[in-house]
Design a binder for these strands. Sequence first.
RNA 1: CGGGGUGUAGCGCAGUUGGCUAGCGCGCAUGAUUCGGGUUCAUGAGGUCGGAGGUUCAAGUCCUCUCACCCCGACCA
Length: 413
Amino acid sequence: MRQTKFFLKTVKESPADETALNARLLIRAGYIDKLMAGAYSYLPLGLKVLEKIKNVVREEMNRIDAQEILMPALQPKSLWDETGRWEEMKDIMFQFKGRGGSDLGQGATHEEPIFDIMRRRLKSYKDLPVAVYQIQDKFRNEPRAKSGLLRGREFSMKDLYSFHATRDDMLAYYDRVKLSYLTIFERLGLNAIAVEASGGAFSEDYSHEFQVLTPNGEDIIFHCDCGWAQNKEIAKVKEGDKCPSCGAEKIRADKGVEVGNIFKLEQKYSAAMKLSVTDQNGKLTPVYMGCYGLGPSRLMGTLVEIHHDDSGIVWPDSVAPFKAHLLLLSQSTVTKEIADNAYAELQKSGVEVLYDDRPESPGAKLTEADLVGLPVRIIVSDKNNGLLEYKRRSSAEIKKIAIKDLVSEINKI
RNA sequence: CGGGGUGUAGCGCAGUUGGCUAGCGCGCAUGAUUCGGGUUCAUGAGGUCGGAGGUUCAAGUCCUCUCACCCCGACCA
């Protein structure tokens, strides 16, 4: 993509109404725009990142035999009355009247509609197991939206629901999802730890939260090098205590951002919403269920909190909106030709490249490139005698390479 | 929802005890200039001072109400 044709405007100064680092950088660098508290637009660069995150999630979901669906955000009260959550969640759910006075709500989560779909289709233990997921915007009337993309009133969530004939099967799938989540976070360039947390309203057992440790996180996590970790909400230890798992006296307390949460719902929901199948003996049994959330938009914010420096964002390769930023620093005909050739080469090889072909000053281009944070920077200038200057955003090392070696150099990543 | 703070040009900000034509920087337009870390200069466009009501000869400035945004707390399938 030529930058002269690309819709991207960066700004020098941080917005006054944001203090969260992720929002300040993402807005300055032209990824997102704030519409109101807790609701952001994704501009071309930002949407590319969000989609890359979602696609990593899709790939890993598909790998654990989950199938993608899409449910409405708009939902009727009647469904939510079956579980009693219309009342229970009235403070957090956007609820309003439809035409004719019908009560409607916007989905803060989707257990009710997925149950409605499943109870009319799952009839026998032979129909199980089944797992479906969707990636959709959730709406929550947060008491306090804050921290940029980390806590929105409208935000992207991937929610997965699994249905099982036996408890053992549910537990086995829960473990599969747990591993899948860890793979997702690793692919995204995040070090997330699985933390025991409250099971919530429909489970007495612990749930697992996936927490990325960062000083800007909202939760407090007690954890040990051995892998044991609990949310402060349920933890009965304090910093420096003996680890209940390995016995070493080095429990640490750190702040974390919750980027995923998985629950064993057992049979409680199925009982409430009459989701039963006939077992091998012909007897009706409530199905076992699990639900598993993960937040792509919150992940995008978290990625910026973790991967940045004083000059701007430093995207991990897996989610960067473009792989390379090609900068034309001189306006001589010869140099322009070299840059055009390099651009053509990259495009031919399928490398996603943003080509800064604007007639701006070198300083402006260099500073802006650091702010935007693409993984590879390639400079073409009169100074380089026909060679290209190759630099990773995450490193200070600069290599001079020939055009013919450019694609192979990038493909090493 | 409690406490604190902020609303003035697209963005970041200044504006004294109420006073005359509301400013600065960035950005934008035009023309020059420059070309390896957001070049320099000139000219220009751009404002119901968040909104409503009030006090006053006179309100960006004082009072009341209200809306929005930020931070702390509470809350957080």
